[in-house]
Amino acid sequence: MTENYGTSADVLIVEDERALADLYTEWLADTYSVRAAYEGEQAIGELEEAVDIVLLDRGLPDIPDDEILDHIRKRDVDCRVVMVTAVEPGLDSIDLEFDDYLIKPVDDEDLRTTVERMEQLATYDDLLQELYQCLVTRSVLLEKDDIEITDHESYSDLQDRIETLQDQIEVTSETFDTGAFEAAFRDLKEPHSHD
């Protein structure tokens, strides 16, 4: 999908199931510089060193989901975060600032294309990155198709944020086509229009 620009990205795998972390490592090790952390505390330690992409499991036994994310945002670690988890997204996912969300089981191809997409995302400016985050969050929430989610205040806030970002992006770059931007990544789920 994208070229690897000489230097390989640093990928941190945070996964308490060792066998799974090892498998991810095997899949990615020939292209990227991969490290694995099997616990939350260990992951926070690893974040001290250079990291471009974090593959983060939810429901780690020693640390709440949002703590690692908070750590990343607070320390201003410039990295993309992909949730790779068996936990289906719910309302509690809205406030988690992730860049993508994969539901287990994932295969070799899923993981590679996602990491490549994250590399591409890193080349965009902040507004586009945030828009992508919001679009992904909306997409995973819609995947669940629960009216409790789509009727929730947080969801409408998210919708508003998406519209604001789209407007801002159109203003800053007249030639920008958000549709092409979305298509460039993948088919993100959008709200149904009523028949």
């Binding site: 066998a19 799974l20 498998l23 095997e26 936990v87 289906e88 287990k104 089981p105 994932v106």
Partner: peptide
């Protein structure tokens, strides 16, 4: 159901991945 599915998906993912390998 959530706990069971979470706990089952991890080993399932390992097994599927290893078959690919």
């Amino acid at each position: 159901a959530s706990v069971v599915s979470h706990d089952l998906r991890n080993p399932l993912n390992v097994a599927l991945g290893r078959i690919d390998v």
